[in-house]
Amino acid sequence: MDMPARAAEESASRLDRMIPNESELTAGVRVEPGKSYGFFTDTTLCIGCKACEVACKEWNNLPADNIGLTGQSYDNTGALSANTWRHVNFIEKAGTCGLRENTQSPFQSGWLMMSDVCKHCHNAPCLEACPTGALFRTEFDTVVVQQDICNGCGYCVPACPFGVVDLSELDGKAHKCTLCYDRLKGGLEPACAKSCPTDSIQFGELEDLQGRAEKRVAQLHELGASNAYLYGAPGSPGATGDLGHLNAFFLLTDRPETYNLPAAPTRAANRVAPSLGTGLAAVAGLALAAFALLSGRD
C-alpha cells in the first residue's frame, strides 16, 4: 500500500471520541443544517504559506497536480483543478521593468497573495448545468458533486464562470471543493480554514461573515488602504449577472483580473430562454416558408 510513513504512524486517533461541535472551539460557530455557511478570504492577511492547499489535499486525499516549478513567482500549483481545491495566487506588484519602487502602499505592499477556492455561488451555474443531478445544494447551502452519480459529461466545466470545476483523468468524474461537506456533517470547521495560521480564510455563517467583512473593509479604509473592497458579497463585483452572492467571497486590494477573477461574471442559465426561443422561432418561420413554397402551384 502506498501510504506515507507519517500516516501509518497516526493510523488511529488518540482521542477516544470526537469533540462534539468542534467548530465552536476553532471557528466560533456551530454547524447546523438549514443555515448558510461559507468562507471569507481576506487577502490582506494572506502570507502565502499554502497551509490551506496542504490541509485540503490531506483531508480530501487528493493527489499532486504539478511536480516541478512554474517560474511564476511562488505559485507552483498553477490553477484550481480536479485535484486542487485551494490554490494560492502569488502576484509580485513592485519592481516592474527591473526598477524597485521606493514607495509602498499599506498592507501587502508589493506582494499580493490570495487563496482561491470554489465560490459556492447562490445561483451556481455548474449546479444548474448538471444534467444528472450529481451537483446538488447541501443542507449547509454549499454546492457538492455526488461522485456516485456524476457520469463525466463535463458540462459543469465550461458552465463555471470562475474556471473552478474540472474533470479528473483518473476517474472520469467532475471534482471541486465540497466546503468539506463530510467535516461539516461531523461538526468540524473545513480543513483549509482551520489550518490558516493568519485567519485569512475565515469559516462561518454567511451573514456573520458578510458583517465581519464589511467591518474589515471599513477598518482598512481608515488605516489608509483605500483600495480594499469585497468581491462576491451582495451587490459587489463578482456577485453580478444574476449569480447572486458568492458563499465564498474575498477581500481584494487590486482589480479582480489581477487575481484571475472576472470583473462581471454572469449566470449561464439566463441564456437558455433567449437562445432556445429565438432559435425555435427562426426554425418555425423557415418551416412555414417551406410549407408555403411546397404548396405553391408552380
Partner: peptide, 28 residues
Amino acid sequence: ASQASAPGRSRHWEGPTYYGRPQVKAAP
C-alpha cells in the same frame, strides 16, 4: 515574475492577466 500583472500584454486587453493563464476552463 513581476510582469505577471503588468498591463498591455495583449493588444485586445489593456488590463492585467494572471501569468497569461486561462481564467475559465475550456469544455472537455
